[in-house]
């Protein structure tokens, strides 16, 4: 899995690419723990080709951290395969989900 970081409108955008499963989520977890990721954040899921409960668990964990810090976490450009996992688990009710990154950044 690849993680690309960019900024739009002063908001950090993490673009995830590839597979987010039990094997790859430790990499994402380490990435989130090593650097300072405070402040609002957008996660671009357009290039995520597969996500399972391990990847979902990490996103839920991140959502909880952001919520307790009173910071926004938005998900953008969810494809159908990713959306399905969120729907099955009802996890979509924990996130603000946008179909456009610029809109998520408030541009």
């Amino acid at each position: 899995m690849n993680i690309a970081e960019s900024t739009i409108n002063g908001i950090k955008v993490l673009s995830l690419e590839g597979v987010l499963n039990a094997a790859s989520s430790p990499k994402f977890k380490a990435y989130l723990e090593t650097a300072d990721h405070s402040g609002p954040m957008i996660i671009n899921l357009e290039q995520v080709e597969f996500i399972d409960s391990s990847g979902l668990g990490l996103l839920v964990r991140l959502a909880r951290q952001k919520k307790s810090a009173n910071e926004a976490l938005k998900l953008a450009k969810m494809n159908d395969r990713v959306k399905r996992v969120f729907e099955i688990t009802q996890a979509h009710s924990l996130f603000d989900i946008y179909d456009d990154i610029q809109a998520a950044a408030g541009n």
């Binding site: 603000d96 989900i97 946008y98 179909d99 456009d100 610029q102 809109a103 998520a104 408030g106």
Partner: peptide, 9 residues
Amino acid sequence: LEKNRQFCS
């Protein structure tokens, strides 16, 4: 509408 901006645009 923001959440569905791409669709509406």
